[in-house]
Design a protein around this nucleic acid. Structure first.
Length: 594
RNA sequence: GGACCUGUAGUGCAGUCUGGAGUGCACGUCGGCCUGUCAAGCCGAAGGUCGCGGGUUCAAAUCCCGUCAGGUCCGCCA
């Protein structure tokens, strides 16, 4: 399979079983160790590894020359085995070397021991990808996609391509626009996800659809966000919420088996409200062994002003009493910036009378306050207690922000093991995230998300209490994907539009063709979108998705290799009927240092 | 739009706080030596717009202002 017209075997695959064989090898010169004209070692590299070629002649080679080496596999003298490479027991001798191409000295090293600035790596990405790191990441990505496609196919899902040049989706992210040449003055929009297309495929009777889909969003970039990213997009008909979670769980579990030959536990479920109250976030990192405790009831009769808020939320950090006063002051500031009135901290110490709380407000404490703390948090000497008293959601959110800072600054001994993958399903998201000034609800998801049937009555009465049939998959604090059951029932859809402040007429103007399609027999359906870049990044132990994308953009949206985006000839603009507005600020902006 | 960090030979870094000769180190490159190395070794050499522009100063890599680029984050984004 691996043999080609030029090559019999990959460099990294030569082993003792090949001894005595005459082989053709192809690859790049990785290292030359020149001992003079009687002995030169040439390390030949391809993506599988390195093999040593021994030459007893003067050579005119330089690193990164592309070679075809014809030689015989020999066992190395035993005292010269190299156990750091897979081919370390053999070498190629009696070499005939054909230079297939020369190479200039590389602008950046591809040695894994040398850290190269990301600017340089992105500028010379074609060289950077020769590195072990990028080769591993891209090949891992391939194997993950391969496994996903296999799982999806096995479950009866059909891969269907959907258009990139499409119509704008009025909700959600800012979209990229593409000017139309044939319809001057009009634009296509690049889809932020195939959401509408896949729902139409359900109406069309596809039953189970999936796609490894490119999604495009013109929003600011982050270590976990690129303009264009890849999603496992799926949708299925005649299913309930749990069916979709089962499909996705199956895909995830299978890929651990296929790619890593290991298995993972069943993915636990947690409601949104549980996540918010225990972790203060809707994307909890289950590796963190600290959860928030509701202390409200314990302090109902307290005289301590700091404990008289609408709710009292606390957490306890084992060994946290060693955190310096200066750091604690910083944490208080962070809590205030997060919207809390303050952050109460208590160092737990011990004297002859037992447990003692050392805090700026401890002088106001009565015995029963101390008893409440002991009862609620079970403190031990050396611990640190952090308390925020405020409305419960805010208090929990602030404690999460503070805890994140404690962990990121290594203030206590919590080591987050990158190899520990803790998945969790977050369910029962709220249907609406807020109510705007004209008393219209603002959708938390897209407007086709199905409300929880039990909460239908609340849509008009108390919209913020309405739960939706939406669910997220979270891994180690990263949101990997989200999905929902979609509304297929016309009257429910109208109720939701009404709550959002849309008349049926307005809704038709925005999503006309979709509502039209739904008239003709839309099956109940639900779906999901799983962020492939984030998944691969975590599985590759990378902290940025750029490391698992072949040609990513920088944070300001520039491709440092091609220096795009770039200006285009006036004729191209004219053809599209586009005239540029002068903006002196941006002139010559892309003249990046060469 | 905002906050913080970074920018010095091809590459990675030191020097910047506390101004004083174009500033060192390592890798790489080039030349020489070398018959078992594997980050080969030894000897020698070349290589700099200190991101860019302006200001302060007798004097700026260093201080000040602006700007560009990279990163992390907030806003934004499922």
């Amino acid at each position: 399979m691996n043999a080609t017209g030029l090559r019999d075997i990959y460099c990294g695959q030569v082993n003792a079983s090949n001894i005595g064989q005459k082989v053709n090898l192809c690859g790049w010169v990785s290292k030359i160790r020149d001992h003079g004209e009687h002995l030169v070692f040439v390390d030949l590299r391809d993506h599988t590894g390195i093999v040593q070629c021994v030459v007893e002649a003067k050579l005119n080679l330089k690193p990164e020359y592309v070679l075809r080496v014809t030689g015989t596999v020999f066992n190395r003298p035993e005292d010269t085995f190299n156990d750091r490479i897979a081919t370390g027991e053999v070498e190629i001798k009696n070499c005939e070397i054909q230079i297939l191409n020369t190479a200039e000295t590389l602008p950046i090293p591809i040695d894994p021991k040398i850290n190269v600035e990301e600017t340089q790596r992105l500028k010379y990405r074609f060289i950077d990808i020769r590195s072990d790191r990028m080769q591993y990441n891209l090949r891992l990505r391939h194997r993950i996609l391969e496994s996903i496609r296999h799982s999806m196919s096995a479950m009866g899902f059909l891969e269907v391509d959907t258009p990139l040049l499409w119509m704008p989706t009025p909700e959600g992210a800012r979209e990229f626009l593409v000017p139309s040449r044939l319809q001057k003055g009009q634009f296509y929009s690049l889809p932020q996800s195939p959401q509408i297309a896949k729902q139409l495929l359900m109406v069309a009777g596809i039953d189970r659809y999936f796609q490894i889909a490119k999604c495009l969003r013109d929003e600011d970039l982050r270590s976990d966000r690129q303009f264009e990213f890849t999603q496992l997009d799926l949708e299925a008909s005649f299913v309930k919420e749990n069916d979709i979670m089962d499909f996705v769980s199956k895909v995830i579990k299978s890929l651990y088996e296929d790619v890593f030959n290991t298995s993972i536990d069943d993915i636990p479920k947690m409601t949104w409200i549980e996540a918010m109250y225990l972790y203060g976030t809707d994307k909890p990192d289950l590796r963190i062994p600290v959860v928030i405790t509701d202390l409200s009831q314990l302090f109902e009769n307290t005289n301590v002003n700091a404990l008289k808020g609408q709710s009292i939320q606390g957490l306890i950090l084992k060994g946290g009493s060693l955190i310096s006063r200066a750091k604690l002051d910083e944490l208080v500031e962070i809590a205030k910036r997060g919207g809390a009135k303050g952050l109460l901290w208590l160092r737990v110490t011990e004297d002859t009378s037992g447990i003692v709380f050392d805090s700026p407000v401890s002088k106001f404490f009565q015995d029963e306050d101390r008893e409440s703390l002991k009862k609620g948090l079970d403190p031990e000497p050396g611990d640190l207690i952090l308390i925020v008293s405020d409305e419960k959601p805010l208090a929990c959110k602030v404690l999460n922000i503070v805890l994140s800072k404690v962990i990121s600054d290594n203030l206590i001994d919590i080591k987050l093991d990158q190899a520990d993958h803790r998945y969790v399903w977050i369910t029962d998201f709220p249907m609406f995230e807020s109510v705007d000034e004209s008393n219209n609800a603002v959708a938390a998801h897209h407007p086709f998300t199905m409300p929880n049937i039990e909460d239908l009555d609340l849509i008009t009465k108390d919209p913020l209490k309405v739960r939706s049939s939406a669910y997220d998959l979270v891994l180690n604090g990263w949101e990997l994907g989200s999905g929902s059951v979609r509304i297929h029932d016309r009257s429910i859809q109208e109720t939701v539009f009404k709550a959002l402040g849309l008349t049926i007429q307005e809704a038709y103007e925005r999503f006309g063709f979709m509502l039209e399609a739904f008239k003709y027999g839309a099956p109940p359906h639900a779906g999901f979108g799983l962020g492939i870049d984030r998944l691969v990044a975590i599985l590759a132990n990378e902290s940025s998705i750029r490391e698992v994308i072949a040609f990513p953009k920088s944070q300001s949206g520039i491709d440092l290799m091609t220096l795009s985006p770039s200006q285009v000839p006036a004729t191209s603009l004219k053809e599209l009927g586009i005239q540029l507005v002068k903006d002196s600020k941006n002139e010559g902006k892309n003249e990046v240092k060469q």
